[in-house]
Amino acid sequence: MNGSEVMTAENIEDAATSEQKSARRASSSVADFLFRKGTGVVAFIVAAALLAIMVSLVIEGWEALHTFGWKFLITSTWDPVTNVYGALVFIVGTLVSSAIAMLIAVPVSFGIALFISELSPRWLRSPISALIELLAAIPSIIYGMWGLLVFAPRFSQIEPWINDHLGAIPWIGVLFQGPPMGIGMLTAGIVLAIMVIPFVASIMRDVFMITPPALKESAYALGATTWEVARHVILPFTRTAVTGGIFLGLGRALGETMAVTFIIGNANNLSASLLMPGSSIASVIANEFTEATTSLYKSSLLALGLILFVITLIVLALAKLLLLRLDASLEGKKS
């Protein structure tokens, strides 16, 4: 607190005696100190929550990690009867379903962002953006229900076609052979894609919109087509933030639980085909946690949670680092 500033205020308050004034000055500086430190402590508690989550998961998962060691990561057995647990099936399931999701979501989001920023008439921009963002507001349990009860039965009618056509391609054909059940890894990937599209698309749209018009217009003036501007001007300019947005979407997809639990099929074994049921880390925790009776079983599930947390932490940290510059430029635009 600056002395001269305090004087100005005190001149107005003639009634106060000098003792009262100095007492008030002292108490207000104490209050300021407490306010600043108090809010600071709360902020650090919030930031420390991440660390606390990590520590508690390590403690709770220690029994499993200690019993199985590194083999926990590469064992594909998950057998509550013989009390042997390995995370491989679920790690693969998580990575594969998220990979399918990103393969679909990235091009779709790019198309949506391009449409909104370059093609759409002005009046259509915000309705379309709002509709796409609605996808993010729908709770994941609704995606799961819809996926299981509405989408999967429809999708199982398409699967014989996938078997016949994609399944016949050499090398990758084996991915698309399997019984037409409707649920499975591929279905989970598709529904995950729908869920992450709004996140990826909105970041892409934001960065496409802040690409300097001078850059775009000079390319147009040279006779470039809209696609050429997008491909050779907008995309190179926004590359970092676009990658950040993709990682953010990936972080969402990896940790998504309820929708995946409904439709991934919950089979605890690996299979080459994407049409076969599988399991992800999140889905096995959601399914089995309340049934886990032995402490090693429960500890293994918590260790799975730790693995998921570490994977998403790395992905999200990368995303945030890539997006730091975007935050700064958006800030600059606001002020």
Partner: peptide, 17 residues
């Protein structure tokens, strides 16, 4: 930075915590 990561952390992990 940490708060932003917490914002996107998987909700099932928060449940486990």
């Amino acid at each position: 930075f940490l708060n932003d990561i917490l914002l996107s952390a998987p909700s099932i992990v928060i449940g486990l915590f």
